[in-house]
Design a protein around this nucleic acid. Structure first.
Lengths: 343, 343
DNA sequence: CTGTTAGCGCATTCAC
DNA sequence: GTGAATGCGCTAACAG
């Protein structure tokens, strides 16, 4: 130690004032020279403070997208178990804006030290964020970011590029003269599915840049009415026999895959999103050609890590957006990802 | 605390005897009931012992496969910097068994607390492992495991399955009637390239299982003599104009890609291994269709983690083999992986 | 503004 | 066989 004593150094590290410029400079010089590295764990031990983190995300169903985000969160809590974090989940129905409004409105009253937000509805999220900022509560986004907010960090994927990926794969997987189709999900009410939109724009962009034309049809899956939906889909395929590749812009590829296989329709390549249990089954049995996965576990894991950093270091994160890689999963590498994600 | 005192508990946790069965049982009961969780970091702080780890791998060139393993190792050392680990690299030329023998022979004398081994030559590795076991020095494999050894853990990829992946992609990327080619590397001397062999067998297996036949030609890249090699390759392509897809079973796909693009040959899809800088460049400019990547960084990272576990917990790892996922990288998702791996 | 003190979970040493 | 004492890096609270 060159100059002053422990307490002072601590004050400087956490810049909580009451330090003379002289000592500050002296200490900072030594810090830089010795390459001082802060130790989160012993710090946590000493603090022995417990933090409350509210996780505001769509209902986390095991084996589905948000369930995997949750898995990552839980994994991180275990890895950093010296930091005492008490998690409280505030789930909402991602298809119901009222459920979201309801859930979000109660969050500031829960007195959290930090919040993880899985945003679906823009304005609801903006309102929540404004309230959190008022109270000085830091928050982190997973899955998507929302404009007009100031998160400590964001962990998401570039949906536009994911759309391009699906475009390229579909193009590679099918002969040039085959037609293609894009399926979204029909939803109740004036739902905006921003992820699907971004994916669609990426896909469209990819095909526009090709030197040749591809015929691309559009249709929808209507989950709420399976029988009707199945009839529509079969009719669609009947009317478009040249369609040999289908992009499903959400995690519902397995629905299409199951319909095709139970109607003995082969030779149509289907690609969709998210490593859910149903999709894994279909990749395994060959009815789904590929899945694009955006590492939900890693997003959850990193979100907790970022929160620990903001809560322990006083310095706030720079609010940067961290993009997850989009993994391409086919039958052969599926078991490897399964294992990793199960860990 | 139910019954005894701190010192005794410690003796039990690290089972170093001098404990009465009575106290042992009492403590163990409490441990189980309270779900006691050992804290590596505070333990490390208290120990304040420094460990020496020797890393015995092929020369780690920045931006290439072993360079990325090294990056993962360094990343882990930073993440776990409360454990004082002093690393010493013992590089060898993976194409030269004498260099390996030479390097390996000096390792036991370096008095390491643990060793990370990137194995290429079977018998040399077996000899080294036997010596380490004699001295009770734990070791961890990255990239590949070697039979007849007893590593604390192994982090590698399933090369056979990687071969199948390349098979499927090539099959998907090219029309059925197109011919395919497989390229290995010609090497000096009686080199065995076990990775290439396993990949080849996986690829062959994949095509055998298809319901239709694919014509698959074989050839080699001869790195040591680029001009001759280029001539051979061009001649090969000239003689086999129906070849529309090429699998390169190692990281040298860029060599082929560069030859093709500088000779204005298009419409041939090339797939190879490893996210090296040259390969990334070719994927970016479209001359390489896909890369299979086996997360060398993660292997290095996990290897250090495993070593920390073995050195701090007294209980040895179970020697299990941890398989890395095989990432499929194309132009669109390349930047995402680049960023992740740069971190 | 600054130094001192006590204590977090853990491990070793040394009496008893 | 066991407990008490000491110290690791860190922080908060308090005394000056």
């Amino acid at each position: 130690m060159a100059g002053v004593s422990a307490g002072t150094v601590d004050r400087i590290l956490h810049n909580r004032g009451n330090v003379s410029p002289a000592s500050r400079e002296a200490v900072e010089r030594v810090l830089a020279k010795t390459g001082y590295k802060y130790n989160i764990h012993t710090s946590a031990v000493s603090l022995k403070k417990s933090y409350k983190v509210v996780i505001a995300i769509p209902t986390a169903i095991k084996g589905e997208y948000w369930g995997n985000i949750r898995k990552g969160i839980e994994h991180a809590l275990e890895e950093y178990s010296d930091v005492t974090i008490e998690c409280e989940y505030a789930f909402y129905d991602q298809f119901d804006i009222y459920s979201c409004r309801n859930s979000f409105s109660s969050i500031p009253e829960m007195q959290p030290n930090a919040v993880i937000i899985g945003a679906t509805f823009i304005s609801e999220t903006q309102i929540l964020c404004a309230r959190l900022e008022e109270k000085g509560i830091p928050y982190v986004f997973v899955d998507a970011s929302i404009e007009g907010t100031h998160p400590a960090a964001t962990y998401s994927s570039d949906q536009h590029i994911c759309g391009r990926i699906i475009g390229r794969l579909l193009n590679l997987f099918t002969p040039r003269d085959a037609e293609l189709a894009v399926f979204g999900s029909r939803r109740i009410g004036n739902e905006r599915a921003s992820n699907s939109l971004a994916r669609m724009s990426g896909l469209a962009e990819y095909f526009q840049e090709l030197s040749y034309r591809r015929v691309i049809k559009e249709s929808k899956i209507f989950e709420q009415h399976p029988e009707e939906s199945t009839r529509n889909i079969l009719q669609f395929l009947d009317e478009n026999p040249a369609v040999k590749g289908i992009a499903v812009l959400n995690s519902r590829g397995y629905i299409l895959a199951d319909i095709l296989s139970s109607n003995n329709i082969k030779d149509i390549k289907i690609i969709c999103f998210d490593l859910t249990e149903n999709n894994m089954r279909c990749v395994q049995n060959g009815t789904l050609s590929a899945i694009i996965c955006q590492r939900p576990e890693l997003q959850g894991f990193y979100a907790i890590k970022a929160i620990i950093r903001t809560l322990l270091y006083n310095l706030p994160e720079k609010g940067s957006v961290h993009l997850m890689p989009a993994d391409i999963i086919i039958k052969e590498n599926l078991p490897m990802y399964k294992e990793i994600y199960a860990e």
